[in-house]
Amino acid sequence: MKLRIKYTKTGPLRYISHLDVMRFFQKAIRRAGFDVSYTKGFSPHQIISFAAPMPLGMTSEGEYFDGEFNTVTNTADMVEGINETMPPYIQVLDIIKLEDKAKPSMSIVAASDYVVYDNPQSEVRPVSNLISKGFELPDELVALKKTKSGEKTEDIRPYIYGLGLMDTTSGEISRWILKPEGASDRVKIVTPLEEPVGLYMLLSAGSINNLKPEAVSGGLAKLFDCPYSAGDERIHRLDTFMNSDTGFASLDKSGERF
């Protein structure tokens, strides 16, 4: 049986690498006593796969992995069971059942949304500066992009699907700079952040056009003449999306609770 598990990674655990998170869940699944499936062969391993690697330093409340299980109980029971064995900074939010033929989360990621906010430890405040300048999104935004063969400049504007000013407590978008079609004016956020306002961004993600939030804030800062370095801001991922008939849908909409 295929399940998709949504989890958070917050606070100090932003310094745990993606590889370590994978190893962490292998153990958490066993502590929780889940009946996970193993591969056959001499050194069997759990059949689980993660959606997208998360860079060091970023926090998130919208991470996913998929797993194969021989038997399951129900969503509420499993969420509670595994959360008891994990620190408060990494918690499972939801578990859904997938169709047998469902594609792995890794292959369907199309977008992600983020809050970018000023690092409370830094004196330079790029996000506040941008906001105070009443910035707009230009028709073309050039940013440096790392590729396999080095760096190149690229217009990242087409990969920005949404941009706004956000109240980090209520999730309310007080001003849209680019409003995604059909978007609500209030975004769901469960993690307390250390700054009251931030930039909301909905960006292309996945293996093809993965746009990093710092490319957007960095590009804007440059354009509007604000001092900026990546360490002056923090990034919190809100959720990860796939394409659906009605536009972007959260990865946890690919199945039902059970």
């Binding site: 100090p12 370590d20 330093g57 620190p87 430890q121």
Partner: peptide
């Protein structure tokens, strides 16, 4: 949990997970 080291240091050293604790 407030970490003893600031982000700018933790982001620039090898394996910052050595210094944060909070393990299971």
């Amino acid at each position: 949990m407030k970490l003893a080291l600031p982000d700018r240091i933790l982001m620039n050293i090898e394996k910052p997970a050595r210094y944060i604790g909070q393990e299971v």
